[in-house]
Design a protein around this nucleic acid. Sequence first.
DNA 1: AGCGCTAGCAAGTCGCTACG
DNA 2: CGTAGCGACTTGCTAGCGCT
Length: 352
Amino acid sequence: MTTHGASLIDVARLAGVSTATAGRALGGYGQVSERTRERVLAAAAELGYRPNSLARSMITGSTNTIGVVVTDVANPFFATALRGITDVTSPAGFEVLLANTGGELSSEQRAVTVMSEKRVDGMIVAAARPGEGAHLKHAMDAGVPVVLIDRQVSGVPDADSITVDNDHAAAEAMEHLLELGHRRIAVITEAGGQLARVRSGNRRRGLFPSAVRLRGYVNALDAAGLAVDSALVASARYDRSSAYDAMVRLLDLADPPTAVLCTDNVLASGAYRAAQDLGLRMPAEVSLIGFDDEPWTTLVRPELTIVEQPTYDLGARAGRQLLTRITATGHQRPQHIQLRAKLVARGSTVPR
DNA sequence: AGCGCTAGCAAGTCGCTACG
DNA sequence: CGTAGCGACTTGCTAGCGCT
């Protein structure tokens, strides 16, 4: 009996069987007679026995734990994806170790290290940087399967990925605005600084969703024969107040946009708030379109037009993919699954 | 079929020996 | 005397084999 309570030895002794038999009765493997099983279970109950999963992992080589690393747990996008993950992995007997990185690479590296040291059976990662995959590759080389969600990362050639087709998602949003007759369309994005790189057209990989969406914005304008006005590309950090400021700047322009696209839901909420505070009539004076079908988008008036991402499905598929990787033997080619987003037109976008 | 015996799992710590 | 090097042993549990 250790400080952690009864061990299998104690249970076996009380039940009058060997530790092997006690283990079989409690673990549900091998052959045990009904009478013996009952004796063992009774002994375990009397002693308040709890199996030592550390010891079990030592011999089975697995911890039945998966690591999930995201940039922002407070973002409903990741919260919903996490639900998709656990709904799939939990019935399979896996527990989740969650880490929030705040988008900091160092924080992500630490999380991956800690999870490796805790011997998780696999990891699902929404990476902080598209070009920094060395720590993930290191984990994979050590035999820990990694499934990337939402973002591709270069330098991790064997990792599966589940992402959203953001080119298509942005195209949907832009098509909608163009069909409504808008010509001065602005974008609020975290990827504003990458405009030149996005326009040069190279680098299919190594772009995060916001940058891909910015590319979709540019491509849509090009296709419509409209020039990209850099004054209409507003940079914002990943927070509401920064998006708020960006929206104010756009609306203060001498020739303001008639429609604004926000490349994620956090930015959209800040922009929406700015339009309200400025006393602007929305959608009459400016149309607004965002991402993700969050509750607030239908609680406000006008309701926000959004591009709905299959967020839950993203998580569920990532979970399923990781489970097959964990149970698979030998090398299999990495899978790159792209899911489709769809436009949900609501009151915040109207014809020009 | 039902059970016991025992090796061995990972990652250490402990204690002994040999040596400068 | 200090210490580097190394084998023995530690934990709780399960896999595999063998006996009845």
